[in-house]
Amino acid sequence: MAGVDQLDQIFFEGVADGQLRVQQCSDCGAHQFYPRVVCKHCGSEQLKWISASGRGRVASFSVVRRGVSAEFEAPYIVALITLEEGVTMMSHLVDVEPEQVASGMAVRVAFRPVGGADIRPVFLRAEVS
């Protein structure tokens, strides 16, 4: 993939293995996403990778009715997902009707091709027990 450095590559290798990897700081314990060479909370360079639970909640979402390009067939749902680990990432909500989506909805990760291109983390509606 263009523009992917070695650090990003660790994330995408995780995706290939069905893992949602985020960084955790060994000094302050905070998680962060996207990958960085320093902890954005404390400045430490002692960062390790963990495999996130893949569970989270919808922080906000939009049903895109006019797609960005021919590769993205509308409607599709762009969402911000806050993971249990406390980090937020952009993704798609899939296998769910737009009318069923609400902020706060519990979701879990899956790995699917996005926009007719590479496999990326997307999110499904989670059954909450």
Binding site: R66, V68, Y76, M90, S91, A117, R120
Partner: peptide
Amino acid sequence: LFEQPYGPTVPA
């Protein structure tokens, strides 16, 4: 790497 691949438009 972490937003554009999901096809967000500016209105989105």
